[in-house]
Design a protein around this nucleic acid. Structure first.
Length: 283
DNA sequence: ACAGTGTAGGGAAAAGCCCGGG
DNA sequence: TCCCGGGCTTTTCCCTACACTG
């Protein structure tokens, strides 16, 4: 059994600058407040003590007053010093000691609550388990569910229930929730979750194209793209439409065909109002 | 309107490397 | 010294959205 930790208000809050807070509209502010309240209430329901060592004078006035109304904060001046968190406005979550191994029984409640917030602010949908449909907030307060979908994999994400055999895979996976992107390209201000992704991206700057087609000499940055290209020489069309019988060498073509069959036209021109099936036609 | 093809980013399994402990 | 296991990195893979072209 793991001992419950005391967390700081900062630990579950996202720190917006004055300017950013001013830029948020009313609905976003309300959403922020609601999520914060829910996060904290879940922590409290799990037996955590929330330490209110936070200066609300900056921008979280609505949060503070709402919290006071709900009498949810216990005022213990205790700060969990072994974990520190900070967040930049570029939606990058920097967690010093952020992830704890599931096999030790420790949960990442700290980061998960922040992540919930982050998902909300980034406009992403709250996470829902594909297997059972439980929402993130349900998962937060349902520890016994931990082993349900793991199939022997001992490192399970407490946000989406995905499980891994290696704790580093879990750590890497969690970046998809937190938005953490430690590998940055300075040329194009892009950042990636994986070092290899950055290196691959950098080839677009250097012009490196190591994968050459033996048939036509065309070169590609990615090996998969070469293999897919080679299918065009072989005439291989792996994706067949069961309605029209048409076959496609790429899944994207197949999906485009599918959209056409449904008659769906989700891409509407803002200038003339015309609706189109494919985004490329809108352009 | 639609098909064919290329570009490039995302997530993850597998393999490889390093290092400390027995 | 060797072996082993865990921590961590790198390689490689497949998938996907989107863009461009005819």
């Amino acid at each position: 059994m793991h001992s419950l930790k005391k967390v700081t208000f900062e630990g579950v809050a996202i720190d917006f600058t004055q300017e950013k807070w001013a830029m948020m509209d009313t609905s976003k502010r309300k959403l922020y407040r609601d999520v914060m309240l829910e996060n904290i209430s879940h922590l409290v329901s799990l037996g955590y003590q929330i330490s209110k060592s936070y200066n609300p004078g900056k921008q979280q006035g609505p949060v503070e007053s709402a919290l006071k109304k709900k009498h949810m904060i216990s005022m213990h001046p205790i700060i969990r010093k072994d974990v520190s968190t900070s967040m930049t406005m570029e939606n990058t979550l920097i967690l010093e000691d952020p992830f704890e191994c599931n096999d030790s029984g420790e949960d990442c409640t700290h980061s998960s609550t922040i992540t919930q917030c982050l998902l909300t602010h980034s406009g992403k949908k709250p996470y829902v388990s594909k297997q059972c449909g439980k929402s993130l907030l349900n998962l937060l307060s349902s520890k016994p569910r931990k082993q349900i979908h793991t199939k022997g994999k001992s490192y399970q994400c407490n946000l989406c229930e995905k499980a891994y055999t290696n704790c580093f895979h879990l750590r890497r996976h969690k970046m998809t929730h937190t938005g953490e992107r430690p590998y940055a390209c300075h040329l194009r201000r892009k950042a990636f979750t994986q070092c290899s992704h950055l290196r691959r991206h950098e080839k677009t700057h250097t012009g490196q194209r190591p994968y050459k087609c033996h048939q036509c000499g065309k070169a590609f940055i990615q090996s998969f793209n070469l293999r897919r290209h080679e299918r065009t020489h072989l005439g291989k069309k792996c994706y067949e439409c069961d309605k029209s019988g048409k076959a496609f060498s790429q899944s994207s073509g197949f999906r485009g065909n599918k959209i056409i069959h449904t008659g769906e036209k989700p891409h509407v021109c803002l200038l003339c109002g015309k609706a189109l099936s494919l985004s490329s036609d809108l352009r």
